[in-house]
Amino acid sequence: MRAILAAVAVAVSIGLAAATAGAVEPDEVLDDPVLESRAREVSKGLRCLVCQNQSIDDSDAELARDLRVLVRERLSAGDSNEQVVDYVVSRYGDFVLLNPPFKASTYALWLGPAALAIVGMIAVFAFYRRRGAAAGAAAAAPRPLSEAEKRRLDGLLEDDPR
């Protein structure tokens, strides 16, 4: 039991450390905690152009460091978070945003999966409805055998070698 508790404690503390650390070096950190937290927030949404699937907040790449410094300089100079993000996008394009914006060129990205799911559900619904209707019709009114079918059935039964 103790061991489990200890393991949980270690896991939680590692998780907390990972959540707060990032790649920000002490010399980059701003004195103003409000500005610094805004810088962290902005940095988490900006892609590192070198390692690509990390944010600049997480990346140790030199270009990421320079971008973090740039974010902090701009925030210190009085830019809003949006202005800083817009500046970086104006240099690197939407690709630099880890969260792609919702606009005409990304409708397929954002709406595609939902559209496919809806089409799929309609198809499944239609399929079962049709099959259910067909089965219901067959169960409600089993067609009686015709004279010819009856004669053939009798013949088959009589031919039974047993």
């Binding site: 152009l49 070198v50 030199e62 270009l63 320079d66 971008l67 410094v69 740039l70 970086v88 240099r91 690197y92 394009g93």
Partner: peptide, 13 residues
């Protein structure tokens, strides 16, 4: 040395 122009040009490498 601090990527000022490089970032302005959108340089990635």
């Amino acid at each position: 040395p601090e990527s000022k122009a490089a970032i302005a040009f959108g340089v990635t490498g």
